[in-house]
C-alpha cells in the first residue's frame, strides 16, 4: 500500500520520470519481478504437457488461445529442484514471439521509480547475470528483475549452445 502511495505522489511531482510497473512472482522463497509491459496474460494453475528430449529449461507445452505455447520453467532454468503442485503461468512477449514462464506463484503488481534501479552486481554468477535485469531497491528488500527477452526459449537455447 505504502509503495502505491509513494508512487502516486511521485507521479504528481515529476510525470516525466515514468514509474515502472512490475509483477512479482514467487519461486520457492525468492521473489522476482517481471516488467508488466511484457506480460500478455497470467494463467493460474497450468498443466504443461512434458516434451521428451527437450532442453532442460523447457517446462512443457500449454494450450493458449489456439496456439501451442512452449514454456520455460524458471525452476529448472535456475537449477532448482522441480516444484510440487501446480505452477502459475505467465504468457510473455519477447521480440521473437510469445512463450510461457512457469513460476510457483504470481504475486502482486508493484510500481517503482527508475531512480531506485541498480544494474546487476558484478559478483553475480554469469548465468544468472544473463537472465536478470538488475534490481529495484524497495523499502525493505531488493526485487530482482527478470529480463523477458533473455528468457525466450530461442535465446536460452542459443546461449546454451554457445
Amino acid at each position: 500500500m505504502s509503495t502505491a502511495t509513494t508512487a502516486l505522489r511521485g507521479k504528481e511531482k515529476a510525470p516525466a520520470a515514468a514509474l515502472v510497473e512490475m509483477c512479482t512472482v514467487r519461486l520457492g522463497s525468492s521473489i522476482f519481478g517481471v516488467p508488466i509491459t511484457h506480460i500478455l496474460e497470467i494463467v493460474g494453475a497450468a498443466r504443461p504437457q512434458p516434451v521428451p528430449l527437450a532442453p532442460i529449461f523447457v517446462g512443457g507445452l500449454v494450450h493458449y488461445r489456439g496456439d501451442v505455447l512452449t514454456t520455460v520453467s524458471l525452476r529448472q532454468l535456475l537449477g532448482l529442484p522441480p516444484g510440487e503442485g501446480r505452477q502459475d503461468l505467465l504468457v510473455l512477449e519477447s521480440a521473437d514471439g510469445i512463450f510461457g514462464l512457469l513460476v510457483d506463484a504470481v504475486g502482486e503488481v508493484l510500481t517503482a521509480s527508475p531512480a531506485d534501479h541498480e544494474p546487476n552486481p558484478s559478483i553475480l554468477d554469469e548465468r544468472r547475470r544473463a537472465l536478470f535485469a538488475g534490481a529495484y531497491k524497495l523499502k525493505d528488500s531488493l526485487l530482482v528483475m527478470l529480463d523477458p527477452e533473455q528468457l525466450d526459449p530461442m535465446r536460452l537455447s542459443a546461449a546454451r549452445a554457445a
Binding site: L53, V58, L61, G66, D67, T70, F99, P153
Partner: peptide, 10 residues
C-alpha cells in the same frame, strides 16, 4: 499446430 523453433530442433 506448429512447434516453437526450440522444440523443432529435437
Amino acid at each position: 499446430k506448429p512447434l516453437s523453433a526450440v522444440l523443432k530442433t529435437i
